[in-house]
Amino acid sequence: YYKILGVDKNASEDEIKKAYRKRALMHHPDRHSGASAEVQKEEEKKFKEVGEAFTILSDPKKKTRYD
């Protein structure tokens, strides 16, 4: 999950949140509406992965379990 968000394992809550926003905007489906179906599908997959990574890393209990 750290790799997906592009943050270090010791990243602060704020750094995780900023990285999530950056990656979410980058891969958001609306940004790729004019792209081919294949690209849209890949970006949607990445967008979901970013969301999942943020869900785990932003919750202290889940993050501890993950680490």
Rank of each mutant, 00 (worst) to 15 (best):
Y1N: 11
Y1G: 07
Y1Q: 01
Y1R: 01
Y1L: 13
Y1K: 04
Y2V: 00
Y2G: 02
Y2M: 05
Y2T: 05
Y2Q: 06
Y2R: 00
K3H: 10
K3G: 12
K3V: 01
K3W: 03
I4Q: 09
I4Y: 01
I4K: 03
I4P: 08
I4E: 11
I4V: 12
L5T: 08
L5A: 03
L5P: 07
G6I: 00
G6L: 00
G6Y: 00
G6C: 00
G6F: 00
G6R: 01
V7Y: 00
V7H: 04
V7T: 07
V7A: 05
V7D: 15
V7K: 02
V7S: 02
D8V: 00
D8T: 10
D8Q: 09
D8E: 14
D8R: 02
D8P: 08
D8C: 05
K9Y: 09
K9I: 08
K9R: 13
K9V: 12
K9L: 04
K9C: 09
N10L: 05
N10A: 04
N10F: 08
N10C: 09
N10K: 07
N10D: 12
A11D: 07
A11M: 05
A11C: 03
A11E: 03
A11Q: 02
A11G: 02
A11V: 02
A11L: 06
A11T: 04
A11H: 01
A11S: 10
S12Y: 02
S12W: 00
S12E: 06
S12F: 01
S12H: 02
S12N: 09
S12I: 00
E13G: 10
E13A: 15
E13C: 10
E13Y: 13
E13R: 11
E13N: 13
D14W: 02
D14N: 07
D14R: 06
D14C: 09
D14I: 09
D14H: 12
D14G: 04
E15H: 01
E15A: 09
E15V: 08
E15P: 00
E15G: 01
E15N: 00
E15W: 00
E15K: 01
I16F: 03
I16R: 04
I16N: 04
I16E: 05
I16P: 02
I16L: 06
K17D: 05
K17E: 13
K17Y: 11
K17S: 08
K17R: 14
K18E: 15
K18P: 01
K18N: 14
K18H: 07
K18F: 02
K18G: 09
K18R: 13
A19I: 02
A19P: 02
A19T: 02
A19M: 05
A19K: 02
A19S: 06
A19E: 09
Y20S: 07
Y20M: 08
Y20L: 06
Y20E: 13
Y20F: 10
R21L: 14
R21P: 08
R21H: 15
R21I: 15
R21M: 12
K22G: 08
K22W: 04
K22Q: 14
K22T: 14
K22D: 10
R23A: 14
R23M: 14
R23V: 13
R23D: 04
R23N: 14
R23P: 04
A24K: 08
A24V: 11
A24C: 13
A24N: 04
A24D: 08
A24R: 13
A24E: 02
A24S: 14
A24W: 12
L25P: 04
L25G: 12
L25A: 11
L25Y: 13
L25K: 15
L25N: 11
L25Q: 14
L25M: 14
L25R: 14
L25F: 12
M26E: 11
M26G: 10
M26A: 12
H27S: 08
H27W: 04
H27T: 03
H27A: 01
H27I: 00
H28N: 06
H28P: 08
H28M: 07
H28F: 02
P29I: 00
P29S: 06
P29C: 01
P29T: 02
P29V: 02
P29R: 04
P29K: 07
D30K: 11
D30C: 07
D30T: 12
D30M: 05
D30A: 12
D30Y: 03
D30I: 10
D30R: 09
R31G: 06
R31S: 09
R31V: 08
R31Q: 10
R31A: 12
R31T: 09
R31D: 06
R31E: 06
R31P: 02
R31C: 06
H32N: 03
H32Y: 11
H32P: 03
H32V: 08
H32T: 07
H32M: 04
H32A: 05
H32I: 04
H32F: 12
S33F: 11
S33A: 15
S33Y: 05
S33V: 15
S33D: 04
S33N: 08
S33R: 15
S33H: 15
S33Q: 12
S33C: 04
S33I: 12
S33E: 12
G34N: 14
G34I: 06
G34K: 12
G34A: 13
G34P: 05
G34T: 15
G34E: 14
G34H: 14
A35Q: 11
A35R: 08
A35P: 02
A35H: 06
S36H: 07
S36W: 00
S36C: 09
S36P: 13
S36M: 08
S36I: 05
A37M: 09
A37G: 10
A37N: 11
A37D: 13
A37C: 11
A37Y: 11
A37K: 11
A37V: 13
A37F: 05
E38W: 03
E38K: 11
E38R: 10
E38Q: 10
E38F: 05
V39C: 05
V39L: 08
V39Y: 07
V39K: 13
V39Q: 11
V39T: 13
Q40H: 03
Q40M: 02
Q40K: 08
Q40A: 05
Q40S: 07
K41V: 10
K41I: 08
K41Q: 11
E42Q: 13
E42L: 09
E42P: 01
E42H: 12
E42T: 11
E42Y: 11
E42K: 07
E43Q: 15
E43Y: 03
E43R: 05
E43T: 06
E43I: 03
E44R: 11
E44C: 08
E44M: 15
E44Y: 05
E44A: 14
E44D: 08
E44L: 12
K45M: 12
K45N: 06
K45P: 01
K45A: 10
K45T: 10
K45V: 09
K45C: 03
K46Q: 07
K46T: 01
K46E: 00
K46N: 04
K46D: 04
F47H: 12
F47M: 13
F47P: 09
F47W: 07
F47D: 04
F47T: 07
F47C: 02
F47R: 04
F47G: 07
F47L: 14
K48Y: 02
K48N: 08
K48A: 11
K48F: 05
K48V: 10
E49F: 01
E49D: 10
E49A: 13
E49H: 00
E49Q: 13
V50C: 11
V50A: 06
V50W: 00
G51T: 15
G51K: 15
G51N: 15
G51Q: 15
G51E: 15
G51M: 15
E52K: 14
E52H: 06
E52A: 07
E52L: 04
E52Q: 10
A53M: 01
A53P: 01
A53Y: 00
A53T: 02
A53D: 01
A53H: 03
A53W: 00
A53E: 02
A53S: 05
A53Q: 03
F54N: 09
F54H: 04
F54C: 08
F54W: 13
F54L: 06
T55C: 08
T55Q: 13
T55A: 15
T55V: 02
T55K: 15
T55S: 15
T55Y: 10
I56D: 04
I56C: 15
I56R: 08
I56S: 09
I56E: 12
I56P: 10
L57S: 09
L57K: 07
L57H: 06
L57F: 01
L57R: 05
L57A: 06
L57E: 08
S58E: 08
S58C: 07
S58F: 03
D59G: 02
D59P: 00
D59W: 00
D59R: 00
D59L: 01
P60S: 11
P60C: 05
P60A: 11
P60Y: 03
P60M: 07
P60R: 08
P60G: 10
K61Y: 11
K61D: 15
K61E: 15
K62L: 14
K62Y: 06
K62P: 04
K62N: 07
K62Q: 15
K63D: 06
K63V: 03
K63E: 11
K63W: 03
K63F: 01
K63G: 08
K63R: 15
T64W: 13
T64P: 03
T64G: 14
T64H: 14
T64E: 15
T64Y: 14
T64S: 15
T64K: 14
R65K: 15
R65H: 13
R65P: 07
R65M: 15
R65S: 15
Y66W: 01
Y66K: 07
Y66R: 08
Y66E: 13
Y66M: 05
D67A: 06
D67W: 00
D67T: 00
D67Q: 06
D67L: 01
D67M: 02
D67R: 00
